[in-house]
Simulated scan of single mutants.
Amino acid sequence: MSVWFSERDIILGQPFMREIDKGLAKTRIGLVLITPALLRRIENGGVSEKELSELLSRDLLIPVAHGVTYEEIRSVSPLLGSRNGLSTGEDSMEDIAKKIAELIAL
């Protein structure tokens, strides 16, 4: 499997969401790590609901909550919070990795 990581693979000065969209277009499964920093970015207009909607239109985009609850996510973005995903508060990183590996193997 190959991994595309937005912070490493996006050249400085490039439109963030456009580059993420290009990366997702080439993927079978996408993971979004939802952290307190991402939620603040959404709240402050750094990521719009339109951009989130486009990302979430992918069938296999899996949110992974880290340091936040799905209740907190839903309060900031009902679109993102309504997606079935994983949480480091409920599962160990090892269990999350196993679940993702099982999905990739399908």
Rank of each mutant, 00 (worst) to 15 (best):
I29K: 06
L56Q: 04
S77A: 06
S6L: 00
R83C: 06
K26F: 02
D91E: 15
G23K: 04
L103R: 15
S77K: 04
I42F: 02
I10K: 02
Q14S: 14
E94Q: 13
N84V: 14
G23Y: 00
A101R: 15
S87I: 09
G81N: 10
D91L: 15
N84I: 14
T69Y: 08
L56Y: 03
E71M: 04
V68F: 05
T35N: 04
G67C: 08
G45P: 04
A25T: 02
L33C: 03
L80H: 09
G30F: 01
I42Y: 02
S77Y: 06
I10S: 03
V76I: 15
L33F: 12
E51N: 07
R74M: 11
V68P: 09
S6P: 00
G81C: 08
S82Q: 12
P63I: 07
L79R: 06
S92F: 12
E72F: 04
G46S: 10
T69R: 05
L79C: 08
N84F: 11
S92L: 10
P63C: 08
S53D: 10
L39I: 03
P63K: 08
V68L: 09
R40G: 08
E102D: 15
P15T: 03
V47Y: 01
D59N: 13
D95E: 15
A105G: 09
D95R: 15
G30R: 02
P63D: 07
P63M: 07
Q14F: 03
A25L: 01
I42P: 03
E71Y: 05
W4A: 07
E7A: 06
E19T: 03
E54G: 07
